[in-house]
Every structure is written in C-alpha cells, then in structure tokens.
C-alpha cells in the first residue's frame, strides 16, 4: 500500500512546477505542516507566504497576489477555509475570478475524534453554489497529481478537498486523466456506485465483492463535483437499475443531490444517497466513522443488496 497522501502529492507536484515557474505561490494559515507543504516552504521560501491563523486574510491576500499575476495555492484545513473565509472566497476568488486554487486539507471527517468543529461536511455544497467556482475531490495520489498539473495550466478559481490520511491507490503512474471527466472504473447493469475522494477505494472493494456475489456493478469516480460530468452520470444511470451515491459530506447539496438532479431529468432510475447524517457525528477515526454510517465497502455492498432485493 502507498504511504503517500494526497496532500503530499500536491506538494510534490507544486515543487516540480515551481522549479521552472516563479509565478507559483503557496499561502498557508499556520498550516504548512498539516498541509505537507513544509518542503515547499523550505525549498522555495520566496514563493511561500505565511499568513498565520487568519483564514479570511489568507484568502483575500491570495486573491490580491493572483491579481498581480501569481498562480496561488492557498492551503488551510477545509473546515475553516470553507466556512471562516467563505465570504472572501465568494467575493475575492469566485466573483473576481482570481487565479487561486483553494486547497482544503483534512477534509470531511479527517480529523475524526477532534469533533464537529474540525469537520467539513458542507464544503462541497458551499463551494459548488458559488458562481464560477470549480470543486474537486481527487481520490488517490496519482489523480491528485494529474489534477494539480491541469489546474496549473489555467487561471480560474478552484477548490480542491483532500483528506488527511493515506488513500489506497486506485490508479497508476500512467493513468488516463481528462479534466472534468469522471473516472469510469467499472460498468454494470445491476447498480452503479458514484463516489469521490477517499471513498473511491472503498467503492473499488465493494464493486469487487459484489462481482464475486454475482452482481454487475458499475463504479464512477466523480472527482469533479463541479463541473460534474453529467454525461457519465446519465450514461451510467441509463445502464443500471439503481444508482448509489456515497459521499463524505452532508446529505444536502453534495454529490448525491447533484447526481439525483441529473438523473431525475433524464431517466426513471432510482437514486439512493448515502452521506453523513444531519446531526452530531460519532467520535472515532475515519475508518470507524465511515463504517458506522455505511460509507465503507461493507455499507455500499449492503445498500446495493438491499436496493436490489426491494426491486
């Protein structure tokens, strides 16, 4: 199993790019360590700006830098970046269309037992409804690196959420990556799982287990939440009897809502959303929490078998 986290993949990709692109700037809010960006800060001190524990300033300063030609990557815990500085994101990044990529680290329930203050269960919904803001939740280190390489090529705002822990490899070095196109990991007529971020490896396990049990199940890695790959969703939903969305996010306004909206306008296929409940979450590490709420491979298998048995 890989020992490389997605945040480390971001740092590696940015360091490689910064080697020949002096316009790349990384900004942090006392978060260089937790974002795994300390090596960048050390190697490129003149391209690194520390703003201290002040997320509002982090985002607006990043926008100011970007307005002067910098390609800015602002990294801060997703919980704070997507709420404390939300208005700065709305106005100075999205509305002004500045070249700022917001890196929400330790997203979702990554901080586990640290509690609800540190969870970000609203960031997909919050970011996606801002005009011109793109939203990405890459699954593994390879996809993360490809995504950052692509985002370096354009000058538009984006929000990227990554988790704290190591995510099992889904792809390989030579992965086929097209920006804003979902990863079609399997196709199937009995059901399709649509998931994103660090839940994708659970989806891979669930798909394999169901195959053993005789089910033909599709699997979409919808790392691009906005713009979501509508064609991939429609195609998968037309082929399958049931669509199961699984996300490390609130039930409201995330992947499940987006997929249901697309499918409802196109076919009769049933959509079941699995997400985190609307309340205080149980304490534990990420695997324990995923298992408790049915977001892991066992939860996905059970949900699909239940949906199939109910017809």
């Amino acid at each position: 199993m890989s020992h490389i986290t997605n945040r480390q993949a971001i740092c590696d990709t940015l360091m490689e790019a910064a080697n020949h692109d002096r316009s790349i700037v990384v900004t942090c809010s006392d978060s260089r360590g937790s974002a795994s960006l300390a090596p960048f800060a050390q190697a490129y001190p003149e391209q690194f700006i520390e703003l201290g524990i002040a997320e509002q300033n982090l985002v607006s300063v990043s926008a100011g830098l970007a307005s002067c030609g910098k390609k800015v990557f602002a990294a801060s815990p997703a919980s704070f970046l997507s709420t404390r500085s939300y208005e700065q994101v709305k106005v100075d990044v999205a509305y002004s269309g500045t070249n700022v990529t917001l890196i929400g680290i330790s997203g979702g329930i990554s901080y586990g037992a640290l509690g609800m203050t540190h969870h970000s269960l609203q960031d997909i919904a919050a970011m996606a409804c801002l005009p011109d803001m793109r939203v990405y939740l890459p699954s593994d280190r390879f996809q993360t690196a490809c995504l950052i390489q692509e985002l370096l090529k354009d000058e538009k705002p984006a929000y990227v959420r990554v988790s704290r822990s190591v995510t099992e490899d889904v792809y390989g070095e030579a992965m086929d990556f097209t920006l804003n196109r979902a990863g079609v990991l399997a196709e199937g007529k009995d059901a399709v799982i649509i998931t994103c971020g660090e839940l994708v490896p659970y989806g891979v396990k669930a798909q394999k287990e169901l195959k053993k049990q005789g089910y033909e199940v599709g699997l979409l890695d919808m790392y691009c939440l906005k713009p979501i790959d509508e064609d991939a969703v429609r195609q998968a939903a037309r082929q399958a009897d049931v669509v199961i969305t699984v996300e490390e996010h609130s039930l409201f306004g995330g992947l499940g809502s987006m997929v249901a909206q697309i499918v409802a306008a196109d076919s009769q296929t049933k959509v079941i959303n699995i997400a985190l409940p609307d309340g205080h979450l149980i304490s534990g590490n990420n695997h324990e929490i995923f298992h408790h709420y049915g977001l892991d491979d066992e939860g996905m298998v059970a949900a699909i078998k239940k949906a199939r048995s109910e017809g």
Binding site: I49, G64, A66
Partner: peptide, 22 residues
C-alpha cells in the same frame, strides 16, 4: 478588482503589495 463587501480591500492590498515585493 471587485470590492464592496466591507473589510476585504486591505487584505487584497496586502496581496498586491506582497506581489510587488516578490
């Protein structure tokens, strides 16, 4: 740059001034 929501301009200015220094 777009502005009007109060309390943003000075931070944006810090970013612009930092870019000049860099």
């Amino acid at each position: 740059i777009n502005s009007g929501s109060l309390g943003h301009g000075l931070s944006l200015g810090v970013g612009m001034a930092l870019a000049a220094k860099m």
